[in-house]
């Protein structure tokens, strides 16, 4: 990484006069200040609320109950279902769309000129479609009676009766994931195409002179170069998918049953339908801790210094 070069050049003098290294740099202060207000305060507030019994409907102030909410959480089956759904939804979507994006980037690599530009522009189209629209559009296409997907599959004779895409507890989550992958794949395609283009020509040329086969070229030369881009873009998308509310809410509201209820949906329902802010906050805190652990492990694995 280029970052390491920059760090190395600053490290040597750092050791010499370590005692004079300041605590903080004024240039980060605006960011730190803004984040302290818009994020620090809500996080602390959430921590405090999570130890209380607090329902917005009762006109009673939050009452301290210690770990009560956390105890409840352990025995709450919906929490565990949501956690599982969140993991399946997030990692499933990200892994599949990153692989598809990678395949597409490699496939279109040899296209040049206007052909490449137009194919790339067309392939990127889904990314410009807002999430809410993705949700409406796919919900419409998935309709059991009158949905175009069932209609086409019936016409082609691939199925003999309409499939309940969003209304079958086994199919609903994969169906939403398909919509999600559709919307997300262009992102990977774009990033990985850019990363492919950034591989120095000499590397490719020397591999070619060594008569590397196509597959060994992909696996031994290109993939190592793409690793960093792949991991960082995956991390970005994992974060964004953990937070994905629009698609699921507009398509199934977490149903049928709890089969598409993710943590976002569950917390939203708890907080804004039941107004149970105490318990919702506790789930938020646990979720936060899980994310932090995940991020640290991921970064450690990547050996990236943020």
């Amino acid at each position: 990484m280029a970052a390491t070069a920059a760090q190395r050049s600053t490290k040597a003098p750092a050791r010499k006069n370590a005692e004079r290294v300041p605590w903080i740099d004024w240039m980060v202060l605006p960011t730190v200040g803004v984040l302290a207000v818009v994020i620090g305060y809500p996080v602390i507030y959430t921590l405090v609320l999570s130890t209380t019994k607090y329902n917005m409907l009762d006109m009673v102030p939050p009452r301290y109950i210690g770990g009560g909410n956390y105890e409840h959480l352990l025995s709450d089956p919906i929490f565990w279902i949501s956690l599982k759904n969140t993991a399946v939804y997030t990692f499933g979507s990200v892994i599949i769309s990153s692989l598809l994006g990678l395949a597409l980037a490699l496939l279109t690599e040899s296209l040049t000129g206007w052909r490449f530009r137009s194919v790339r522009a067309l392939l990127l189209t889904p990314w410009a479609v807002p999430f809410v629209v993705v949700a409406f559009l796919f919900r419409y296409m998935y309709l059991q009676n009158g949905g175009v997907i069932n209609a086409v599959l019936l016409d082609l004779g691939l199925i003999d009766k309409p499939v309940l895409w969003l209304n079958n507890s086994a199919l609903a989550l994969p169906a939403i994931m398909a919509a999600n992958i559709w919307a997300m794949m262009p992102f990977f395609f774009l990033l990985l195409s850019a990363a492919l283009a950034a591989i120095p020509n000499e590397v490719i040329e020397s591999a070619r002179i060594d008569k590397a086969g196509t597959w060994s070229m992909v696996f031994h030369i290109k993939l190592p170069f793409l690793k960093s881009a792949l991991f960082i873009s995956s991390l970005l998308m994992i974060i964004s998918n953990f937070n994905d509310f629009a698609k699921i809410w507009a398509m199934t509201q977490g149903g049928p049953g709890y089969s598409t209820t993710t943590l976002v949906i569950y917390v939203y329902r708890l907080a804004f339908e039941n107004f149970d802010f105490g318990y919702a906050s506790a789930i938020g805190v646990v979720w936060l801790v899980l994310l932090l652990v995940f991020a640290l492990v991921y970064l450690r694995a990547l050996k990236v210094n943020p």
Binding site: A3, A6, T10, A14, V21, P22, W23, I24, D25, M27, V28, T31, V32, L35, V38, I39, Y41, P42, V43, Y45, T46, L49, I239, F242, N243, F245, L263, V264, V267, Y268, A271, F272, F277, A280, S281, I283, G284, V285, W287, L288, L291, L292, A295, L299, N305, P306
Partner: peptide
Amino acid sequence: SRARFRLRGPVGYSVLLFRMLPLVVMLAPL
């Protein structure tokens, strides 16, 4: 990226971690 200061690591990490916060959890306080 460039400067040396002691809180650099913590600041850098927290920026990244803040990015991960579940938005829905912060709704009510915000």
